[in-house]
Simulated assay, not measured.
Amino acid sequence: MKLDFTKTNGLIPVIIQDFYSLKVLMLGYMNEAAFAKTQAEKKVTFYSRSRNELWTKGETSGNFLNAVNFSKDCDDDTLLIKVIPEGPVCHTGSVSCFNESSAKGFLYELENVIDERISNDSTTSYTNELYKKGINKIAQKVGEEAVELVIEAKDDNIDLFQNEAADLLYHFLILLKVKNVKLETIEGILKERMR
């Protein structure tokens, strides 16, 4: 990958993004040596403008940024690195230097839509209709969707498999709602298990 370090006196801005959630975690700067070290070691190394030296993120805290993917912008003077972080990224202990505690993506948006349809008692909503049938019916539906996904997994029709996976995720979110459990809680458990 060829980057243009000449435009900004030998340094380029580097955006750090979580590989899984796509959450922007921080911004740092690299010179050519920092970039070469990051590529070689797969641990993000920046150039410290205040100390005028290279520093590998996590060398004192243990919160390394494991580089997975590198992308440059169209002008070759900005870098995006997708990482798997080992612990909090910000020196304050936050997940992100932009004061965001968790990633919010489409599944969270869908969780909100499910909540709204139930809270507003939408009479034309399948979601609300299923919710009103109670935990037994919802749990049964999740079980049915899981079995259908397993069946499709054994066949070669990827479209059917993907649709059954979507059905399972959707009904799982309704089950979480009826149990009064947030998706973020499940995400937190999975994150803990990764350590």
Rank of each mutant, 00 (worst) to 15 (best):
I138D: 07
L27H: 13
M194P: 03
P85F: 13
G10R: 04
L176G: 00
E111P: 09
C90I: 07
L25N: 10
V113R: 13
V181P: 03
T127W: 12
L169C: 11
L27C: 11
N136L: 12
K72I: 10
S119M: 15
I138C: 07
F46M: 14
E86I: 13
A139R: 14
L3C: 12
L169N: 09
K177N: 05
Q17C: 13
F46G: 05
N31W: 05
F46H: 12
N112Y: 05
T60W: 07
E32S: 12
D167L: 06
K43Y: 06
D4V: 04
F64R: 08
N163A: 02
S61F: 08
L176Q: 07
N31C: 07
Y131S: 14
C97D: 14
K137G: 05
E164N: 01
I151C: 02
N157G: 09
Y29G: 00
V14A: 03
Y131L: 00
V147E: 04
V14Q: 02
N69P: 03
L65F: 01
K132L: 12
G134L: 08
T38G: 02
H171A: 01
N136P: 00
E59H: 07
Q162M: 00
D121L: 08
S122H: 13
W55L: 12
N180F: 01
G188D: 14
F19H: 14
V14M: 06
D159H: 00
I118T: 06
E129N: 11
K2C: 00
H91L: 03
M194A: 12
K132R: 15
G10N: 08
V181I: 15
K177M: 04
F35S: 09
Y131V: 01
S119Q: 14
E111M: 07
G58N: 06
K137T: 10
L107P: 13
K23S: 06
F161R: 09
S94C: 13
E145F: 06
G10E: 03
